[in-house]
Amino acid sequence: MNIFRLAGDMTHLASVLVLLLKIHTIKSCSGVSLKTQELYALVFATRYLDIFVTYVSFYNTVMKLIFLGSSFSIVWYIRRHRVVRRSYDKDQDTFRHLFLLLPCLVLALVINEKFTFKEVMWTFSIYLEAVAILPQLVLLQRTRNIDNLTGQYVFLLGAYRALYILNWIYRYFTEEHYVHWITWIAGIIQTLLYADFFYYYFQSWKNSVKLELPA
C-alpha cells in the first residue's frame, strides 16, 4: 500500500459517501444518473465475486463491503425510496445500459489474462467501470443543472482515478512483475473521460462561479 493508492481509495470512498449522504439527508437524487449507479453496483458485484474466498487484507475486505453496500443502497434509494424516487429525472436519464454492457462483455471475453469465469467477470468489471460514468456525464451536460454535491461527487471520482494512475506508476518502479496492461489502459481511458469535466470544474472554482457545463 502506497500513499497514492490510499489517497485514491479515500477519494473514492468520499465520493460514494458524499452521494449517499446527499440523497439521504436532502431526500433528493436530482441530477444523479440511476444508470451510472446501477452500472457501478454491477461493477462491484462482478469484481468482488471472490470476496469471501480470496483474502487480501482486512482493509480490502472492509472497503469491498462498503463499496458493495453503498452502491446498492444508492440504487435502492433512487428506485424504491418513497420520497427520493420522485426527484429522479427519468426522462433525462435515457442512456441505454446495453450500449455499454455488451461491448464490455464481448471485450472481456476476448481480451483477458485468463479465460476463467472469475477472471472474465473481473475484467468485465474493469472495462465497465471505465465507461460507467458516461450516463452521469451525459445527464449533467443535458440538464446543465449541477448542484455542488453532484459536482463534488464527479470531481472526487475523477480524482480517485488520477490517483490510481500515480499508484500504478509508483508500483511499476518499486515492485517486481507489476505489469497490468488491461487495468492500466482501461484506467487511463476512464480518467480521460473526466478531462472535460475537470476543465470546467476548475474554471468555475478559479472564477468562483457556479459550475455550468456548455450545452
Binding site: 493508492r5 481509495d9 471472490d50 480470496t54 472497503m63 487495468t183
Partner: peptide, 10 residues
C-alpha cells in the same frame, strides 16, 4: 518470481 495470485486493488 511468481506474480502474486489474485487482484489486490479495489
Amino acid at each position: 518470481k511468481e506474480e502474486p495470485q489474485g487482484h489486490d486493488e479495489l
